[in-house]
Amino acid sequence: MKYTEDHEWLNLDGDVVTVGITDHAQEQLGDIVFIELPEVGTQISKGDDIVVIESVKAASDIVAPLDGEIVEVNDAIVENPASVNEDAEGGAWFVRVKVDDTAQLDEYMDETAYKDLIA
């Protein structure tokens, strides 16, 4: 598992990375009320806005951490956005991306470094 400074978690399985937000991020956002996901098949580049999240406190975007193609989206969180508050680092993932270069993950933090960041 890797973590971004934007409080996303990244879990690599082969050449597919599952992307979600950390428990810390969902706590900061508060009750999540709306999520908009990209279309499967969308080509993304690192830095692109790929997900819109709205909470009772704020609206924010998830930014693509890697270059690749969206191969799966978690429609369940669109139907039940509050599930992200309940299981942010588990079943409430956002997208799965077939990455162009898994070496891009090397620039992100491991769990220890992420915990230091949010401490």
Score class of each variant (00 low, 15 high):
A92Y: 13
A64N: 09
N74Q: 14
A64R: 06
D106Y: 03
E72Y: 04
V51M: 02
Y108N: 10
A64M: 07
E8K: 08
V95K: 10
G47P: 01
A76E: 15
I77T: 05
L105C: 06
A88G: 08
P38C: 06
I50T: 03
S83F: 04
L12T: 07
E27F: 02
G68E: 09
D101T: 06
G47M: 03
P81F: 10
E5Q: 14
V71T: 15
L66H: 09
E27Y: 05
D101F: 04
V97D: 08
G90Q: 10
D100T: 14
M109I: 01
I35A: 03
T42H: 01
I62N: 12
L10Y: 07
A88I: 09
D61I: 05
I50M: 11
E107R: 12
F34E: 04
E54A: 02
D106M: 02
E86G: 04
A82C: 00
S83Y: 06
V17G: 06
L37D: 08
G30N: 12
D48G: 03
I21D: 07
N11D: 15
E72C: 02
D100Q: 13
I21V: 15
A25T: 08
T102C: 00
D23V: 01
D61Y: 13
I62V: 15
D13V: 11
D101S: 08
D75E: 15
E69H: 01
F34V: 01
A92D: 12
I62K: 05
A88Y: 06
A58N: 07
A76R: 12
Q104G: 04
A113T: 09
V99N: 08
I77R: 09
Y108K: 11
H24P: 00
D101A: 06
T42S: 14
T42E: 12
A25N: 09
L12R: 06
E72N: 12
V33T: 14
L105S: 05
D48V: 02
E27D: 15
D31Q: 11
K57I: 08
A88P: 14
A113D: 13
E36C: 01
D101C: 03
E69D: 06
V97I: 15
G20R: 13
A82G: 10
E79M: 04
I53V: 15
D13A: 14
D87Y: 13
E36S: 12
G91N: 12
L12Q: 11
N74Y: 12
Y3D: 04
V33D: 04
A59M: 15
A64Y: 08
S45N: 14
E72S: 14
L12W: 05
I35P: 05
E79K: 14
L10A: 11
